[in-house]
Design a protein around this nucleic acid. Structure first.
Length: 573
DNA sequence: GCCGTTTTCGGCCCGACTGTTTTCAGTCG
């Protein structure tokens, strides 16, 4: 799948063109194309093969030729040529907050700065302040910007940001001075990784709120403390902004600060066509300047003739067109979930007994769980021997007799071994209620080998779900090479489900792949992969990927009552 | 570079803040 590679190349070309001072609209075209490539659910190679590049938005004649060239030759001459025009270190300088293309160009031309190290040195030696239009303040800002990058400009997993944001929002909500409060930005859109946390509020006494915020226990450094906007760094090094807004503009501001940028651009373009203008202060008639709305977020969409678009969908990936046609999906809600289909107990590397898991699941309002411990080859995780698994099945059957209105499915997370065979015999797998199969070894195998292993697992009658189908660990391990298009096809054909694994570092299938699976007619099974009782809460995280993947209740296996769920499994057909 | 029942040429999202200026360019979200 070359989508990501091409996106990367277009981003970089855009950056180089920016430094060169090329036509800003041309640059925007590259960024837009890159963004489209990145979130395209279809394999670009197939689109090229079928000669359908002209269907892609933002891809015209010239970019289509470039994509074609890269897909067929693995190279892009225009990119190679462009790269020679600008030293590679210069692009890294752009990542320093406060340094844009113009400044980067000036720094390179006057001081030959082409790396962050050289930039730091020049700032410390006060060489930058000798340039026109730059003074000491700029030097300070550059040094601070470099610190910010070093300290963790890297994005954090949603699973880390969400609890932290909840903590801050919870603390501020307690103040009687705070009326409305909402996180905005990528956190509200529930992106799998978050850059910084943005919180919007309305208040009768902004100054008081700001005082409380900048003195919260999680604060390690106050970056700015103003009347209406304050910024802090938490002890974990996470940047948090709080803005106090006029209630009159709150909806428009919430819409604006939620983004995404691409969604907002598309929305504003649409507004212009209708003789309207949108800003963070409201939606206006362009000619008369009359304000039409702004207090409520929903009104912005309504006035544009759109149905309300959930924050998770705001990526300019077809949601505006769907809203126009009143064809937005009714996104799955956490309350639609009736059970968890991937939990580890203390029979392998989990910490809780099956009884305790049942108790915790019931408290969440669930009707069933599938206990899926590790299989025998995964020795490090206490994988179950054949004998132990048989015993566990017996235990679960016994337990079910005692339970009323709740069902424990005897399951397993069976390893797909390096040669593509499974870790237990079919005879043993047959005795289970529910089998998820997963790869835990041989990550470095070729795309063909890994795909073949998963395909073979799908073709096994007793495998119900492929767990964490890409094997990635956010910020730690790249996904293994796998032809997901093929896997989706085979899953559809064999009646196998694909998992959204809720483990915050996994979270795969991710949003894009989930949407792809849905489009390919494959249903999703959601499992928390919980190893402790607390981790059952990860269900919330899994739902973010599902919702961003446009999934509805009907697309997800564990929204069904248990008897209907079991009937959907190929083993029972 | 893309795009089009207002256009195949001339547009392309909007506003605030900052640092440097004395009217504005650059950067950001």
């Amino acid at each position: 799948m070359k989508n990501r590679e091409i996106a990367q190349i277009f981003y970089e070309m855009g950056e180089i063109l920016e430094i060169k001072g090329d036509n800003p609209f041309k640059i925007r075209a590259y960024y837009k194309a890159a963004q489209n490539m990145e979130s395209l659910t279809e394999d670009i190679e197939r689109i090229v093969q079928e000669d359908r590049l002209n269907e892609l938005p933002g891809i015209g004649v010239k970019l289509a030729l470039k994509i074609k060239e890269y897909v067929t030759t693995g190279k892009l001459r225009a990119y190679e040529k462009l790269k020679k025009k600008v030293p590679s270190g210069l692009i890294k300088i752009l990542s320093v907050p406060g340094v844009g293309p113009k400044t980067a160009k000036l720094l390179y031309e006057e001081l030959k700065i082409d790396s962050i190290e050289k930039l730091k040195k020049a700032a410390k030696e006060h060489k930058i302040s000798q340039l026109p239009h730059l003074k000491e303040k700029t030097e300070e800002n550059i040094l601070r910007g470099i610190e910010i990058i070093k300290r963790g400009m890297e994005r954090m997993p949603l699973g880390v940001a969400l609890p932290l944001a909840n903590e801050i929002v919870g603390a501020l909500k307690k103040l009687p001075e705070v009326k409305e409060i909402n996180p905005a930005g990528s956190l509200r859109r529930k992106k799998e990784t978050i850059g910084d946390i943005d919180i919007l509020i309305t208040s009768t006494r902004p100054a008081k709120v700001m005082d409380v915020f900048t003195n919260l226990p999680c604060v390690s450094q106050v970056i700015a403390h103003g009347e209406t906007k304050s910024s802090i760094l938490t002890k974990e090094g996470i940047h948090v902004d709080v803005r106090v807004l006029n209630p009159r503009n709150y909806g428009a501001a919430l819409q604006y600060f939620t983004g995404s940028k691409e969604h907002n651009i598309a929305l504003r373009t649409l507004a212009l066509k209708k003789g309207l203008k949108i800003s963070e202060y409201g939606i206006f008639n362009k000619r008369s300047g009359k304000r039409l709305a702004g207090e409520k977020e929903e009104d912005i969409y309504k006035i544009l003739g759109l149905s309300y678009i959930e924050p998770e969908l705001r990526e300019n990936q077809g949601e505006i067109e769907a809203a126009k046609a009143n064809r937005l999906p009714k996104l799955i809600e956490e309350s639609d979930i009736r059970g968890d289909l991937h939990i580890h107990s203390n029979w392998s590397d989990g910490s809780a007994s099956i009884e305790k898991i049942v108790e915790a699941a019931r408290k969440r309002g669930w009707e069933y769980v599938a206990i899926c411990d590790h299989s025998k080859s995964l020795k490090i995780a206490g994988g179950l021997s054949d004998k132990e698994l048989k015993e566990q099945i017996k235990e679960i059957r016994k337990l079910n007799k005692r339970l009323k209105g709740f069902r424990v499915l005897a399951g397993i997370e069976v390893d797909i071994l390096k040669d593509g065979t499974l870790d237990y015999s079919d005879e043993l797998l047959r005795q289970l209620d529910f089998v998820v199969a997963a790869i835990h070894s041989g990550f470095k195998q070729s795309r063909e080998q890994i795909t073949k292993r998963i395909v073979k697992a799908c073709e096994n009658r007793w495998v119900d779900v492929i767990a964490h189908p890409t094997g990635r660990l956010l910020g730690e391990r790249a996904p293994y090479e796998v032809d997901l298009d093929k896997v989706i096809k085979v899953a559809k054909h064999t009646g196998t489900f694909l998992e959204i694994n809720a483990y915050p570092k996994r979270l795969d299938l991710n949003d894009i792949h989930s949407r792809k699976a849905k489009e390919g007619g494959v249903k999703i099974s959601i499992g928390t992969d919980a190893h402790t009782l607390d981790q059952l809460d990860y269900m919330t995280i899994a739902l973010t990927a599902a919702r961003r993947g446009w999934l509805e209740k009907k697309d997800v296996l564990n929204t069904l009552p248990v008897d209907r769920l079991l009937k959907k499994l190929k083993r029972n057909k």
